Amino acid sequence: MIFFSLPEVLFMLIGAIVLDWLIGDPKWLPHPVIFIGSWISYLEKRLLPGQAKRRNGILMMLIVTLSSFTLVWGLSAAASWVHPWAVYAVNTWLISTTIAIKGLKDAAMLVYEPLSQGDLTEARKYTGYIVGRDTGELDASELSRATVETVAENTVDAVISPLFYALLGAAPLAMLYRATNTLDSMVGYRNAKYVHFGWASARLDDVLNWIPARVTGWLLILVSIPYRYASPVQAWKAVRAFAHLHPSPNSGIPEAAVAGGLGIELGGLNRYGGVASERARLGWPNRPIVKEDIVHTVRLLYGVSYLVMGGLLCAACGWL
């Protein structure tokens, strides 16, 4: 059995964040989420056509999450047989693949850069890579809103949640969370196709994100303090006033914090496959959303990661 002491886990998390800051997810390196997504697709083709969709969805959720946990635990165990330091290296790298600070920034800037050049066609293309809504007719403000919402929401999904579960159970538990989040992104929809089949995956994702989302809300409020374009007081007020209006029990918290802090309104009318959907409006429309809000949100994202790194370093030094 592989067990880590708290100082060992702290230093692995520190190393994982540094790795993500520096290299992110290079395309030449196989990424575990790609394999998880392929595994989900394979199981979906075999389980979705069945009549007992909710039962089959629960079965798929259990297979994907437990196999992800077990495989990573097995890799850790194998590495421990090679060399004591190998297990630390394997866990540090695997934890780094569950977070996406640099990846979020890069994806957001792929939208911001063509917006800065007035190229809506390119901006719409890259926005379509990171959101599920229709982007073909969105203007610059709506493209900026979509990107800001994605970065804000994923500050939980791609940063705080995986780090939270890595702190509790190193790479195996972080990968179980990442598998759950991938399941939710692929089948956790409330449409006719997935409402029953994806129910278990969506609910588990809600449960696992419950604590990290609330931690993220406070972190976003705190990192708003040094930025002249963000208001921590308004961020806090927006979370209290609007977060509960979001259909997700968790996503409304970071989105409301960013909206309130920047003095903009997120949410509103989206279209999915040509069908209009009115999402809860979060924050106050004190001004129009502009492309610079993408950069501001990315800076808040990095500010959150700096706060987390500071906390980890302080805790690790306390154990030395």
Rank of each mutant, 00 (worst) to 15 (best):
1 M>T: 13
2 I>Y: 07
5 S>N: 12
8 E>L: 10
8 E>S: 14
9 V>M: 11
16 A>I: 05
18 V>W: 07
25 D>E: 12
26 P>D: 08
31 H>G: 08
33 V>L: 06
38 S>C: 12
38 S>D: 14
50 G>R: 15
64 V>T: 06
65 T>W: 01
65 T>N: 09
73 W>I: 05
77 A>N: 10
77 A>E: 14
78 A>S: 13
79 A>F: 06
81 W>H: 13
81 W>Y: 15
83 H>M: 14
84 P>S: 08
84 P>V: 11
86 A>I: 07
87 V>N: 02
88 Y>V: 14
91 N>S: 05
97 T>W: 03
99 I>G: 00
102 K>N: 12
105 K>C: 07
105 K>N: 11
106 D>T: 14
110 L>I: 13
112 Y>G: 05
115 L>G: 03
125 K>Q: 13
125 K>H: 13
130 I>A: 06
135 T>V: 13
135 T>G: 05
137 E>P: 07
138 L>M: 11
138 L>Q: 03
141 S>R: 04
144 S>F: 07
145 R>D: 02
156 V>F: 01
156 V>H: 00
163 L>F: 00
163 L>H: 00
166 A>D: 07
171 A>T: 06
172 P>S: 08
173 L>R: 01
173 L>C: 04
175 M>A: 05
176 L>W: 02
179 A>G: 03
184 D>K: 02
186 M>L: 14
186 M>D: 00
187 V>S: 02
190 R>P: 09
195 V>E: 13
197 F>K: 02
198 G>T: 06
201 S>W: 07
203 R>E: 11
208 L>D: 01
212 P>V: 05
214 R>T: 09
216 T>W: 04
219 L>K: 00
220 L>V: 08
221 I>N: 00
221 I>E: 03
223 V>M: 07
223 V>F: 04
226 P>T: 07
228 R>M: 12
229 Y>L: 10
231 S>W: 04
235 A>T: 06
237 K>T: 12
240 R>F: 11
244 H>D: 12
245 L>T: 09
248 S>Q: 05
251 S>H: 01
252 G>A: 04
252 G>F: 01
253 I>V: 11
255 E>T: 10
255 E>P: 08
257 A>P: 03
264 I>F: 00
268 G>T: 09
270 N>W: 02
272 Y>E: 12
283 G>Y: 01
283 G>D: 01
286 N>R: 14
286 N>G: 15
291 K>A: 15
300 L>P: 02
303 G>E: 05
305 S>T: 11
305 S>K: 07
308 V>G: 00
312 L>T: 00
316 A>W: 07
